[in-house]
């Protein structure tokens, strides 16, 4: 209502899924004569899934006050050039049962709706701004854009290969071809599992490190390697956000009825 304008988030949730998968998943591969682009291409291949279901817990911590916990469940289905994502907020109580439906198309004509349980009403909303914070966390839509692995969206350079957290990793520098919120990113990728182990986000001047994303608890899920915990830290404030993947299921059969405004309104298929 006019006056009750708060939305839990307007973030493009489909992209969150891509980020999480991109950060978390890798496939075993032999190490050949790699380039920055080829490594990123292999990581990108590892992201591909026709459908995906994730149960996620996000913990926000500033080291001073009580941690804040957000819990979301999300389903994603790719059909043709459209990726449909439905997300339910489970906690905190103030946003519980808020539901998002996003239809992201390759041509950029995205659709997004939100169901606000307090109003019992579905609202159509504009696609979110890239710089906006996701639920008050250290993750933004811009973060997701700057960690893109598509070879045609950034110039990727293999800087070196080194051991990180006991694993041999490629270190890739990525400089976006179009202007983004960050000047460059540096990514550590497991040479065997193709799991992203760490990302550094630099400001537009390409010099000052702004945020760091680290991955932990790497385990195999089926034929995929996956980091079940990721922590994003904003270095200037020390504020950090940990994402814990409680459950992840790939390529499962999801009814199309989940990805409709009717489900958004009723929570039923």
């Amino acid at each position: 209502m006019i006056i009750h304008t708060r939305k839990p988030s307007r973030t493009q949730l489909a992209t969150l899924i891509l980020l999480l998968v991109g950060m978390a998943v890798g496939l075993s591969a032999a190490e050949n004569q790699e380039t920055g682009a080829s490594v990123m291409e292999k990581v990108s291949l590892a992201q591909k899934a026709e459908s995906l279901a994730m149960d996620i817990q996000m913990t926000l911590a500033d080291g001073k006050s009580e941690d804040r916990v957000r819990r979301i469940q999300t389903l994603s289905l790719t059909e043709g050039d459209a990726t449909k994502t439905i997300t339910i907020f489970l906690t905190p109580a103030s946003v519980k049962n808020t539901r998002f439906l996003t239809i992201a198309r390759s041509n950029g004509n995205d659709d997004q709706w939100i169901f606000l349980p307090a109003l019992g009403k579905v609202k159509r909303i504009a696609a979110s701004e890239r710089g906006g914070s996701f639920m008050g966390s250290d993750f933004t839509y811009a973060d997701m854009a700057s960690t893109t692995y598509a070879t045609d969206e950034a110039a990727h350079t293999l800087l070196r290969t080194e051991t990180y957290q006991g694993r041999l990793c490629h270190v890739i520098e990525s400089i976006p071809l179009a202007a983004k919120d960050y000047g460059r990113t540096v990514t550590w990728i497991d040479t065997e599992r193709y799991v992203v182990m760490q990302v550094e986000f630099y400001q537009k001047d390409k010099q000052i490190l702004q945020k760091r994303l680290t991955a932990e608890d790497v385990r195999q899920a089926g034929n995929r390697w996956m980091a079940y915990k990721m922590t994003m830290t904003t270095l200037s404030s020390g504020h950090r956000t940990q994402i814990e993947i409680l459950q992840a299921k790939f390529d499962l059969t999801l009814p199309a009825a989940y990805f409709t405004v009717a489900f958004l309104e009723t929570g039923r298929i």
Partner: peptide, 11 residues
């Protein structure tokens, strides 16, 4: 909590 209990089970 609510959620996709058919996919994830009860929270």
């Amino acid at each position: 909590e609510a959620g996709f209990s058919d996919i994830f089970g009860s929270s």
